[in-house]
Simulated assay, not measured.
Amino acid sequence: MSPLIPLGLAFAALGLWLALRLHRETRIRAATRAGYFDAVKPLFEGGEARLQPTGFPRMTGRRGGLAFDLQAVPDTLTFRKLPALWVMITLPEPLPMQATLDLMARPSGNEPFTRFAALRQSLPTPPGLPVEVAVRSDDATRIPPPDLIARHADLFQDPRVKELVLSPKGVRIVILAEEADRGRFLIFREAEMGRTPLSPNRLQPLLTRLAGLRDDILTLTKDPA
């Protein structure tokens, strides 16, 4: 028997083992991503999730009589320091507003989850907000008064809060949920994220904030008695 035959069999066995391991890890990764919002479902009445092309879910549910929408958006563009996972928390209940106001912390112009750069008017940063928060609108003459933003300025004290949007279609907060592990990304270019489901303790205060923000807007626009 040629000595090359056992060596070839060994390489074949190794190749099969690696293929099976890759298949198993791919299945685990897909299941983990698909369950990213599982831990926060109890916060909602009848939360429903549907899988997106990214492998992460999009979830809708009602809380306190209001409809909420959650989206997980992976951002693996190479110009970022590290790949990131953003979560968009939206309260898509119509509001009596005539313009959109968008506040973005440290905008790069390449965020995949926003139309911030498309809003044509750039506004001064209101007092009480960090200087790195930029503000844009599609009609600065019709945005809410500054005191409304001042009441919610503390939201941006959390460095992982990226964006706050107020619009006729509703209100939204975007947070940085996770960044890829620096060591594994730099060495292996591995950018896997979402291994740990979104925590209810992280999400619940933001849901409460959005509901309170909506109430404030309705109060401001209510006709006087």
Rank of each mutant, 00 (worst) to 15 (best):
E132K: 07
P124K: 03
R214D: 03
R62H: 08
E111L: 05
A10H: 08
P224R: 08
T141P: 15
F37T: 00
R136T: 12
G212L: 09
L51T: 01
T60W: 07
L207W: 02
F188Y: 11
P124Y: 09
E132W: 10
L43K: 08
P107M: 05
Q71K: 07
R202I: 02
P159C: 07
L70E: 03
A180Y: 04
T60N: 07
L95V: 12
P224W: 09
K41M: 13
A150F: 08
P127A: 15
P124A: 14
D69K: 00
R195H: 12
R189T: 13
E192K: 14
K169Y: 14
F11T: 13
R29N: 06
A49L: 02
T60P: 04
E132F: 11
F113T: 04
D181P: 01
L4I: 08
T60G: 13
P224L: 09
G109F: 08
G35H: 02
R62W: 05
R63E: 00
L186F: 02
A191M: 01
A19M: 09
Q98W: 15
R27G: 11
Q52S: 03
T219R: 10
L164I: 03
A34F: 00
A225H: 10
R21P: 09
A31F: 00
F116Q: 02
A67Y: 11
S122K: 15
I173F: 07
L186A: 09
P3T: 12
T76V: 13
T114Q: 07
R142A: 15
F185K: 04
T114N: 02
K169E: 13
I175P: 05
P205Y: 03
R62Q: 11
F68E: 01
D154K: 14
S122D: 13
R58Q: 11
L9Q: 12
G46W: 10
R58P: 00
P42F: 05
P159L: 04
L176H: 03
S108M: 08
F44M: 05
D75P: 01
E25R: 15
R63A: 06
A84T: 05
L164Y: 05
E25P: 14
R29G: 06
L103K: 05
F79D: 10
R184N: 05
H23M: 14
E93C: 09
F185G: 00
A30W: 06
L210W: 09
R214Y: 07
P197A: 14
M97K: 05
G212T: 09
D158H: 03
E25A: 10
T90V: 10
H152C: 07
L206I: 04
S2D: 14
A211N: 03
V165A: 01
P197Q: 07
F79Y: 12
I28M: 13
P197N: 11
